[in-house]
Structures are given as structure tokens and as C-alpha cells.
Amino acid sequence: MSTEIQEKEVVKIKQSESLISKRRRKILVDPLDDNNPISIQVLGICSALAVTIKLEPTIVMSISVVFVMIFSSLITSMIRNYIPVRVRIIVQLAIIATLVTLVSEFLKAFNYEMFKVLGAFVGLIITNCIILGRLEAYAMGNKPYDSVLDALGSSVGYAWIILVVAFFRELLGSGSILGWKVFEAVGWDTFPTNGLFVDSIGAFIILGLLIWAQRTRNGYIEN
């Protein structure tokens, strides 16, 4: 008898919450700035830096990560009550690996040039800590719709950071944006491109400065 009442109440709460309530908007927006996966939580740095030499592969990488993140969160959240706790990491890795294989085969079939540029780094989305971290911390304990919102927020928060890094690296390292020579178009033919930014060192420094700027803005201080 009492369980029936409880179930009814749960249903009621569900209905009363709008599709984009205040709580859900917070889930979505929080990882974009105040709780950003890269600059605040220090997750998923590896792939953030490896593919950001040019803007175009970075866009492909961002889309892949958003895709893998959303669907792995959805699947994990839907079967979360059936996953044995002891083997959950392997189950989560299997879900992620399946989706990443899908992305990698899709790229191989429709954009082989890009697949060659990204190389092993598509496969390394599996070990992107953001994905496993969000599955473990959020999708394992929450309903599918909320988990998808959380995944969308986190992956877009990841995407904008790597897009900014890629923008500066391509601009300063190759003097172009999406392959379009900006400085020649402006009439500055002798713009000195800096090889340091094509190299890994430029990525570390740009990301370091970006983190500095962002943390100064939102006042986050790490101990």
C-alpha cells in the first residue's frame, strides 16, 4: 500500500518538473565555465592538446567527443541498475570503446584524410578521463535525461576550450584560420609564424594562459 503511494508521488514530481527547469539548466550550464572539465576539474587534457595544431581536426574531435559522451551517458544511465558494482569500470569502458569504434569507422569511411590526421587520437577518446569521470560520477546514479544534459554540458565545456586553443595555435603557428591565410589577406605578407605554437610547448603555454584568464575572471583559487 505504502509503495503505491510513493510511486504516485514520484510520478507527480516528474510531471511537475519542466523539460528545462532551473535545476536542469544549472546541470547544463555549470560545466561550461564554473565547473569546466578541463580548466577546473583537470580532466581530459591529453586529447585537448594533441589535436589542436589546426582548427579543422579540432572541430571533428569536438563533435566526436560530444557524440561519444552523450550516447555513453544515455546508455550507462539506462542500464545503470543492471551493472554489477564490481565490474562497472570494464562495462563503462566497453560502452565507450564501442561508441569510439563507431566514430572511428565512420571517419574511415567518409573522411579518410581526417582519419589519417587524427590517427591514434580518435582511439584515445576511450581514455579521455572526462567521459569515464562523468559516467562514474553522474550517469551511474541519475536518470537518462538528466545524464544526457550533464554529458552535453561537460562535452561542450571541453569543446570550447580546445577550440580556443586550436584557434590561437593555428593563427600564431601557421598564420591561418581553417586553412585561410589571414595575414596575407590583410596584406601583411611577412607575418612571422612561430614554430613554437605548432609544437607541443605552445599548447601548454596557451592553455596555461587561458586557465589563468578564466580563473581570474570567475575567481576560482586552487590550494
Binding site: S39, G208, I211, W212, Q214, R215, Y220, I221, E222
Partner: peptide, 8 residues
């Protein structure tokens, strides 16, 4: 500097 502490 405060904003640079830790990760930065």
C-alpha cells in the same frame, strides 16, 4: 598569482 595557482 591566485588565478595561476595549481593547474595554470
Amino acid at each position: 598569482p591566485n588565478g595561476l595557482k595549481g593547474l595554470g
